[in-house]
Computed example of a mutant assay.
Amino acid sequence: MHRQKKTCIAMMLCAAMLSQSFVFDAYGTSAADSSVSKSASGASMFTLDKLGSVTLKQSVSVKLTDMNISVHPDGNILTYTLRYSNNSGSRVDLIDYFSKLSTPSGTIIKGKVVTSDAGKRTLPANSSQSVTYYVNIGRSAQVNGMKVSMFGWDFSSATYEKKLGGFTIPAQYSSVVPVGKSKKMKMNNISVTAKADTVQRYTINGKVYIKLGMKLSNGGTKVLSDPGYKAYLKSAGGSIFELLPESSSTGYKLQPQESRTIYYWTEFLPR
């Protein structure tokens, strides 16, 4: 009789230095049975929105809206997204502000803008804009305890910088998204909502296979073409497995407001 076994799965879509991750908990038992982890549902109650905002100057503020970690052999990559809001009547130069990430061990690393956001250098009057940054955090694998601090240039100080505030990720925060819940991300600079629709486990000739169905919804105004991202599965033990898309799930094009489920397969060897 097949014994139910808990499998923690992390699905990562990777392109260059930016890795968008879609992480969820699931119980894999058979092709017809998958259920949501109660612990994941509870952990996801805390959202980054509850951290509030940091004032950069009068009528200009910033919020932390997203944070994820993807595993790489030469060091794990943490990405975080800051949303700047300019409620003033004049333009704001983003070069006047910068952020640093502090790890729980005390390491401080200045965030670098991902290539796709490199052109976002100004913030027009009465507008908002999101910018994603990345840092190499070595062996660290948890976002809990990470802190993003905001700075502005201050040439009257010894360090030429002034700390304006920050965001600390609390222990109760989790980037795990339960099956059936959705996560917003950017693909080819288009806003996309991703949701783990199905997680199915098959045993064939003594080998275990996982089939993942990820529903993508194009929330932008342009056609989303298959970006050719590589996808990976991360087990609870930290092992990484490359996911291969079904032939029908490659080369797709999603019209604005259109949705489609993309299917991936991998042989799963938990350890």
Rank of each mutant, 00 (worst) to 15 (best):
H72S: 13
A158G: 10
V135K: 03
K38G: 00
K234G: 09
N188P: 02
S59T: 07
V92S: 01
N189Q: 15
D96W: 09
A31F: 07
G145L: 05
T266Y: 06
S39Y: 01
K6I: 08
S35W: 05
Y97W: 13
C14D: 14
S85F: 12
A236L: 13
A10N: 11
D93V: 10
F167M: 05
K234W: 07
L254W: 06
N188R: 12
Y97Q: 08
A40M: 00
S235A: 11
K183G: 00
E242C: 04
D154L: 10
Y209C: 04
A40L: 00
S259L: 08
A26K: 00
G145W: 03
L51K: 02
V131M: 05
A171F: 11
A118E: 15
G152S: 13
P104Y: 08
Q142T: 11
K63G: 04
D74C: 08
H72K: 15
G166Y: 03
D197R: 00
S90Y: 11
G111I: 03
Y133G: 06
V62F: 03
I262G: 01
S130K: 09
R91W: 03
S149W: 04
I210A: 09
K6Q: 12
F268L: 11
D66K: 13
N136L: 11
A16C: 11
S249N: 09
Y84V: 02
Y173F: 15
A125T: 05
T132S: 14
T79L: 10
T81H: 01
S37C: 13
N188E: 14
S225T: 15
T261P: 03
G42F: 06
G219M: 09
N87E: 15
L78C: 13
T193E: 14
D117R: 03
T168S: 14
N218I: 08
F22G: 01
S102I: 09
N87V: 09
S39T: 05
S70Q: 06
K230V: 10
I69P: 02
G165M: 04
W153A: 07
K63T: 12
Q20I: 07
F155L: 13
K63C: 04
K38P: 00
S70N: 06
S102N: 12
V114A: 12
G238N: 06
M11A: 14
S37Q: 07
S53W: 02
V208S: 14
A171G: 07
N188T: 09
G145H: 06
V62H: 02
S85Q: 13
D74T: 12
R91D: 08
L64H: 02
T79D: 10
T47M: 11
V62W: 04
R3W: 14
I204P: 06
I262V: 10
P245D: 02
C8P: 00
G28C: 07
M67R: 04
G166K: 05
L48R: 04
N86Y: 04
F46C: 01
Y80K: 04
T221K: 14
Y97I: 08
T7Q: 12
N126C: 09
S34E: 03
I9S: 01
F241P: 00
L78K: 01
L216Y: 10
D226I: 05
